[in-house]
Design a protein around this nucleic acid. Sequence first.
DNA 1: TAAGCTCATGTTTTT
DNA 2: CATGAGCTTA
Length: 843
Amino acid sequence: MSDFPDDMPFFGDPAAPRAQAGGSVAPGGIAARAMKARSAPNYLQGLNPEQRLAVETTEGPLLVLAGAGTGKTRVLTTRIAHILSLGLAYPSQILAVTFTNKAAREMKERIGVLVGGAVEGMPWLGTFHSIGVKLLRRHAELAGLKSDFTILDTDDVIRLIKQLIQAEGLDDKRWPARTFANMIDGWKNKGLGPSEIPEGDARSFANGKGRQLYQAYQDRLKTLNACDFGDLLCHPIRIFRAHPDILREYNARFKYILVDEYQDTNTAQYMWLRLLAQRPDNSRRQSGSPISPLAGEIGAKPGRSTVNICCVGDDDQSIYGWRGAEVDNILRFEKDFPGAAVVRLERNYRSTAHILGAASHLIAHNEGRLGKTLFTEAPNPDDDRVHVHAAWDSEEEARAVGEEIEQAQRKGHALNNMAILVRASFQMREFEDRFVTLGLNYRVIGGPRFYERLEIRDAMAYFRVVAQGADDLAFERIVNTPKRGLGEAAIRQVHDYARARDIPMLAAAADLVATEELKPKPRSALKEVVDNFTRWQSLLDSTPHTELAEMILDESGYTAMWQNDRSAEAPGRLENLKELIRSMEEYESLRGFLEHVALVMDAEQNEELDAVNIMTLHSAKGLEFETVFLPGWEEGLFPHQRSLDEGGRSGLEEERRLAYVGLTRAKKNLHIWFVSNRRIHGLWQSTIPSRFLEELPEAHVEVAETGNSYGGYGGYGQSRFDRADPFQNSYSTPGWQRAQQNRSEATRSNWGSRSGANVERIGYGEADSGFGAGRGSVKGRTIDGELVAKSVSDTPSAFKPGDRVFHMKFGNGNIAAIDGNKLTIDFDRAGQKRVLDSFVQRV
DNA sequence: TAAGCTCATGTTTTT
DNA sequence: CATGAGCTTA
């Protein structure tokens, strides 16, 4: 098609990229053997046979099941290099999709190493969303947008929906915008438009107004010349369906399609891929049919022209089901693409045999897997087993992990090679606190983002209005920031005028300031705003964008606003604004920069610094570290209660996959921790070791002896597993048995319903005795010689107001009030606190 | 208009 | 507990 300026030849005869004959290369077939016989180019050297098969099977559909650490990225990048060097396609004829920018960036770099500058000619290598934007900008008018449309982030979306909910006269507290934003997101993940959502869904929000609101939202987006993340996929899908001629152009263009992390694709992404993977012979089957998902949009029948699509993934690492990913997509691949070749990569180059053994045994507890078993070719008898540690509470956990890190550091291990992977981000804090105390460098990955800061968002809002005058959300954000005396009333007037005429607010403001509608003061203030934007917009194409950006921030008074601010954060904010301008230099234009920010929300981390990495298990996917710490393996936290409540069995399986991801991040050393007490929402609760611990195979695990800290599991004997029955590993230490017993008790009493009423709590005695047996607990039950208090909220409290009590953390105090099993106590030193009755005793 | 107060809320997270 | 949102008060 003529509007592709990017067709650049690579190797071989530029005029005629050769397409190999259709049909896949049967493993062991003549073609495959012939390929092997040929002397292998450099880039193929060092691939193992499976990898090489995956690289060289260029024709036809191919599913690569790549276990953790089996060289997935290498296969993907080498495959692209291979296609290019054989001249099977131009760089611009390869569609390569990833989920994250990080993955896209890495792939690009690694292809660059293999093929050099040719990678620059690959405009279709990127995330689903970035490729979606590219498609949509080309065909924006077919979706009712202009090609300079704005991409809204979650925050904008919520504000917009809130306005709509209020406009409907609904109570935005009863019907939170955030909830509806999530619903819309869910629908868009499934590729459903307002008219296609299930009736039940439509009814479940705002007294049956769900569908109407969704439609109103889409209409509003059109007026704003904007779209949300979901639209980046859904609009192209609609365009392809409604305009087969356009789709055919892309079908013809993309000679090779590669998809990374296929197990994470949602339904919309799946439909998108299927459309793009259509080939001439079967494109007839698709028409402008409504979204009746998944129904034979493709299907390369044997004997017809097949599609060269290669999906790489690992069903065992599917951890994004909660945001719409369909593991089923990968499980169904061979049905979707008949005649597909499947290559399994099971040879692991990352972890020790113990780590692999533990991970494999754990994941084997899941049903419905495609089934892979990782193995290593280099088992080493000296390797450490997976260590399981117990701690009294999360504070001790953080302290002990800190000690181990320092110890490793003394042995010469770099902090960069260590990571702490948590289930939930609140766990990070305790580690951060501890590391600050120790003076240990750490880095939080996936924390609060640069572009989400207030001052950055404000500045971006200015830029957005300049770049795209219809962006009302941005306009509203900064029209009175800094304060210009444009209060609610004035803004309301502009808003209503704009809505009534279906024009952008900036245009409405321009109209209004020419009339006598507004009071003199707001009128002149608004006039200045309008004039400013008009001027900045006129400079957009003639002024270097960084210069323009600085001009905007100065002339608007935004910079001055922070300069005059005497608060502690102000200097930091100014610094961030400077950083923002600096980072703009790397982009060609203001628009390019805005797009980058919309799609790549994160700023780069400082990798120079040697620091321990702290992140969630989710963000650890794809990474590897020499030493990995996995704290918080307790029921309710991991597996997370909410996954269990909402996802049932499949929720549990997803949690298990998450555990599997965690285990397989480690190359050499792996330490798992659980604590017996954790503070949740301010209350100390006793916890039970995660069921996943029991699912680890004894042969690869060692329960660490920890006699080092106060109140801990000091009296532990040598760690042992129950040899009698390897499948029902019961650890034979007292603490373990107690844990087991607690667990079965708890299960019987419906553990962890959200009420928190039947959470088991362990009572304890004086501060220095820690877990001392039987000392002064409230209502007790003896297990293994230790006293376990069970307190349930419907049991009347044994205390009365005015009682003098002792609490291990807060010391002595008097009871002020009682609420079920929760006591409000005025502590002598710590002030008033609410604690559970099982944590205090009378003095 | 901005600070101060009460109240509700509480996974994971990309784009 | 700790944060954020919304509301009240000076």
